[in-house]
């Protein structure tokens, strides 16, 4: 049994709303969440809005500070941003700086890493990444506004891969995309996971997408983990009422005719 690549123990995130006149209002966004991500697997966190799944993702990546909890990567405790843990975001239109060319956007992580790469090496790496995500090199000189949502999401993936991460956190990457583009991006993620030996932490509210891409699933409700298990097992035999309710809401729309 290999050690997990990423583990989270008793994570607690509290949002404080401080004001001068009134008492500081506290909202517990994530309450004692613990789980493990094994090497090479895809773990999905499923929940509705307000369940805290995005907050968990941001805490792990280092963007969100947390009250309490231990996050370890490869056995070592991490506290902050690590280049081995990268993230792709939900809104493709907001994930690229509109003032930078795509080449600059992709090369940004390379510039920050301590590796001394010169101009040509960077461009070569960028072109390699572009071909990995299935986009033509001619796009590199263009600006984000020339691309569609799906293409922007692929550039986001290319940028995340530029720092050679081991863990890729996907925060609802396909929720804002059309069905046919969603399929392209999901296929891409699945193939990249195998190709580049990534462990994926996939956040979503869509159970059918999760079923396609994830090996294990964690269900969150109101900041807490309510159920955890292998994808197929969880969907066939859900135990918690909330999980049952979720599955019911989705599957009632799929009838036999739909699945012919």
């Amino acid at each position: 049994m290999e050690n997990p690549i990423l583990s989270v123990y008793d994570l607690k995130v509290i949002f404080k709303k401080s004001s001068l006149l009134f008492k500081t209002q506290k909202k517990i966004a994530v309450n004692d969440v613990s789980f493990e991500l094994k090497y090479g697997e895809c773990l999905a966190i499923v929940g509705e809005s307000g369940s805290g799944k995005s907050t968990v993702a941001r805490s792990i990546s280092g963007l969100q500070s947390y009250e309490h909890g231990v996050i370890t990567f490869n056995g070592e405790r991490i506290d902050g941003i690590l280049p081995e843990i990268q993230m792709i975001f939900q809104d493709p239109h907001a994930s690229l700086d509109p003032r930078m060319t795509l080449l600059d956007s992709i090369c940004e992580p390379m510039a920050q890493l301590k590796t001394r790469m010169d101009e040509t090496e960077r461009t070569n790496l960028a072109e390699e990444l572009m071909s990995k995500v299935g986009l033509d090199n001619s796009y590199l000189k263009r600006y984000p506004h020339a691309l569609s949502g799906g293409q922007k999401q692929r550039i986001g993936i290319a940028r995340a891969l530029a720092s050679s991460p081991k863990v890729l956190i996907c925060d609802e990457p396909v929720s804002a995309l059309d069905v046919s583009i969603q399929a392209q991006v999901l296929n891409l993620l699945k193939s990249l996971q195998k190709e580049m030996d990534l462990s994926l932490l996939f956040i979503s509210h869509d159970l059918s997408v999760v079923r396609f891409i994830a090996d294990r699933v964690i269900v969150m409700q109101k900041g807490e983990v309510v159920e955890e298990g292998e994808t197929d097992e969880l969907i066939q035999n859900p135990e918690h009422i909330y999980t049952k309710k979720l599955i019911d809401s989705v599957s009632c729309m799929e009838s036999d005719t739909f699945l012919a």
Partner: peptide, 24 residues
Amino acid sequence: KSLIEACPSLKGPKESLLKAIPGT
């Protein structure tokens, strides 16, 4: 047809790859 096939389903058979529609 492609639209239906591109949707990942919850109850149907599990797919290893979704049938995406190439192009834009």
